[in-house]
Structures are given as structure tokens and as C-alpha cells.
């Protein structure tokens, strides 16, 4: 899949599509606890958006554009999930106990309810998205 479509239209609009999809995926990730969504789904959507980008703009360019090597980010995600798991043990609680925090007067957003599961979910999000991207890039460039 070396050269991709050379039509200008797709190349121009893909950036917008990429942005839209990532907004929705982060939105899905953040509301995951109460409404359908969550780390896996968000991660996969981001992964798909990168695949889309790679398909249209070509994989080498995507590889160069990536701000941080995907595997490192994936392992960071795993580390994040691990930390949220082991941190409570420092305070003598069991492994993977989750804490919830309820803030009422956050300036911009108003009432917010966040907790450690969100961190765990972010870890999953990073891991899944980076893995999808890395796998597809390597598979594509190895043809």
C-alpha cells in the first residue's frame, strides 16, 4: 500500500475527519463510566482514525508524523494502569481499590465526578490505540 489515492479532495478533508473522530473518541472515553463508551472503544476509534490517516497520506509519512513512538506510549498506558492498581496498596488498601472524587464547583464545567477508574481507562485507551497504530504501520510497511 505504498502510494495512496492522489486525489486532492480526500487528502484535504482527511484532517477534518481525523479531528472529528478523535473528539468523539475522547468524549466516549471520558463518559465511559456512566454511558456507553470507555477505554477500549475510545482507543479503537483513535486507532481507526490513525489508520485512516495512514491510508490516505501514506504510511511512511504517518510514521514520521507520529509525535511519540507508539510502543512507548502503549507501555506508558500499561504503566499508568498498573500504578492506579498498585497505588492503593501503598495506603494499606487492597490491590486495585478504586477511589471516587466528587467536585461540585469546577469553574468551567460545573459539577464533575472523576475517579481512579478514569485513569485506568485512560491507560487502556493509550495502550489500545497505540497498539492498533503500531501493528497496522508495521504490517503496511512490510509489504
Amino acid at each position: 500500500m505504498k502510494a495512496t489515492t492522489d486525489s486532492f479532495l480526500v487528502r484535504a478533508l482527511i484532517g477534518l475527519v481525523f479531528l472529528l473522530v478523535n473528539i468523539v473518541s475522547v468524549y466516549l472515553l471520558l463518559r465511559g463510566h456512566n454511558l456507553p463508551g470507555g477505554g477500549f472503544i475510545g482507543g479503537l476509534m483513535t486507532g481507526m482514525s490513525f489508520i485512516l490517516l495512514g491510508l490516505v497520506r501514506g504510511w511512511e509519512e504517518l510514521q514520521r508524523e507520529l509525535p511519540v513512538p507508539p510502543l512507548r506510549l502503549a507501555s506508558f498506558g500499561l504503566l499508568l494502569a498498573m500504578i492506579t492498581g498498585t497505588a492503593p496498596m501503598l495506603f494499606g488498601r487492597q490491590f486495585l481499590t478504586q477511589y471516587q472524587l466528587h467536585l461540585d464547583y469546577v469553574p468551567l464545567i460545573g459539577e464533575v465526578h472523576i475517579g481512579t477508574p478514569l485513569l485506568f481507562d485512560i491507560g487502556v485507551f493509550l495502550l489500545v490505540s497505540c497498539i492498533t497504530v503500531k501493528l497496522v504501520i508495521v504490517l503496511a510497511r512490510s509489504t
Binding site: 489515492t5 486525489s7 479532495l9 480526500v10 478533508l13 477534518l16 475527519v17 472529528l20 468523539v24
Partner: peptide, 21 residues
């Protein structure tokens, strides 16, 4: 409305791609 814009964006693009091919 977001879904609407998204579909308005992608389906014609798909049509365009296939037509170009």
C-alpha cells in the same frame, strides 16, 4: 448534528473516491 455533518462529509468523499478509481 455532529453525526449529520460527519455523514455529509464522509459519504460523498467515498463516492468521489470510487468514482475516481
Amino acid at each position: 448534528f455532529l453525526v449529520m455533518t460527519f455523514t455529509l462529509l464522509t459519504i460523498p468523499l467515498a463516492g468521489h473516491l470510487t468514482a475516481q478509481l
